[in-house]
Structures are given as C-alpha cells and as structure tokens.
C-alpha cells in the first residue's frame, strides 16, 4: 500500500516506548504493532486524533504517501 504509517519515527523522535504509547492512546499493543508494520487497512479518525495528541504531532507527520 502506498500509504506509510510513520508511528515508529514519531515514537523515536519523542523517545516514547510502545507500552507508553499504548497506555496513552488506549489501544492494544497488538493493534499498535499492526500500525507499525504497515498491515493496517484503515485508521479511525479517533485513533489518529489520540495518536496526534499523545505524540504531539499533526496527522501529516504520521501518514505519508509514497509512489509505488
């Protein structure tokens, strides 16, 4: 899929662990792992909102379009 989720990049910038992010956002480690590995088919606005709030960033920082 040409949409890349840069959650791991933002986590590294904020020096935040997966467990910490999971607790702050309120989604399971398994679902965060799906997001990180690029297996997710869709993302809810509320999840995006929670991630932006936890990582103090914009949706554009988390999502990127790459031509195949």
């Amino acid at each position: 899929m040409p949409i890349v989720v840069n959650v791991d990049v933002m986590m590294a910038r904020r020096k935040m662990s997966l467990t910490e992010l999971s607790e702050k956002v309120g989604i399971t480690m398994a679902n965060l792992s799906i997001l990180k590995t690029g297996k997710a088919r869709a993302i809810r606005f509320e999840t995006l909102e929670a991630l932006c709030e936890a990582l103090d960033c914009q949706p554009g920082d988390l999502l990127e379009y790459q031509r195949e």
Binding site: I27, N31, L32, I34, L35, K39, A40, R41, A42, I43, R44, T47
Partner: peptide, 8 residues
C-alpha cells in the same frame, strides 16, 4: 471481518 480487524 478482515477489514474490520485491520481497522485500528
């Protein structure tokens, strides 16, 4: 169901 499971 798969779509739903992979929607985060």
């Amino acid at each position: 169901q798969q779509e739903k499971d992979l929607t985060i």
